[in-house]
Simulated scan of single mutants.
Amino acid sequence: MVSNVMLIDDNKIDLFICRKIIEKYDPQIKTRNFTNATSALNYLRLCYPNSKSKTLLPPDLILLDINMPQMDGFQFIEELKKGEIYFNKFPKIYMLSSSLYPEDISKADNNLYCAGYLTKPLTVGSFSSICNTATKNRKLRNSYLRLI
């Protein structure tokens, strides 16, 4: 079940739309918006040592724009891969972009840290699909662990 979502996009209108779509899907899901990848990384660095905090909630899911100034979505993932941030459970990362470049889509699809590629705008249907996939994967994993 998805309960905390991190939105990273340099476009404030896209952030607003994503937040409203998520609220429409489930008003109980908490969202945290970031207009650049650097501030999102700084939040994650603070969040995980304090994961029992009620205000610093680690994300279950990250919706990440590709094309941003300073640090793009792929550079953000590279920073996460360095392992400087300890994750109890690594969040699912989906690229959410208006880019239709086949290279971007292929790069996202071939990145082990990226769970998928979505085109903007986010819809209730596409968000529902992400949430259902996450729930199915967790149920399969838990079923497998019971067998061991």
Score class of each variant (00 low, 15 high):
41 L>K: 07
41 L>Q: 13
42 N>D: 11
42 N>I: 08
42 N>Q: 13
44 L>Q: 04
47 C>S: 14
48 Y>T: 04
49 P>A: 05
50 N>L: 08
51 S>K: 14
52 K>N: 14
53 S>E: 03
54 K>E: 13
54 K>M: 01
55 T>P: 01
55 T>L: 12
55 T>Q: 14
56 L>Q: 05
56 L>C: 04
57 L>F: 03
58 P>F: 00
58 P>G: 13
59 P>F: 10
60 D>I: 09
60 D>P: 01
60 D>K: 08
61 L>T: 11
61 L>I: 00
62 I>T: 09
62 I>V: 14
62 I>W: 04
63 L>E: 07
64 L>K: 07
64 L>D: 06
67 N>W: 02
68 M>I: 11
69 P>I: 10
69 P>T: 02
70 Q>D: 13
72 D>Q: 05
73 G>V: 08
75 Q>I: 04
75 Q>L: 08
76 F>H: 11
77 I>A: 01
79 E>A: 12
79 E>F: 12
81 K>A: 14
81 K>P: 02
81 K>I: 10
82 K>A: 09
82 K>G: 04
84 E>V: 06
84 E>I: 07
85 I>D: 05
85 I>E: 01
87 F>K: 07
87 F>E: 02
87 F>L: 09
89 K>R: 11
90 F>S: 03
90 F>L: 05
91 P>G: 11
92 K>S: 15
93 I>W: 02
95 M>F: 15
95 M>T: 07
96 L>M: 06
96 L>E: 07
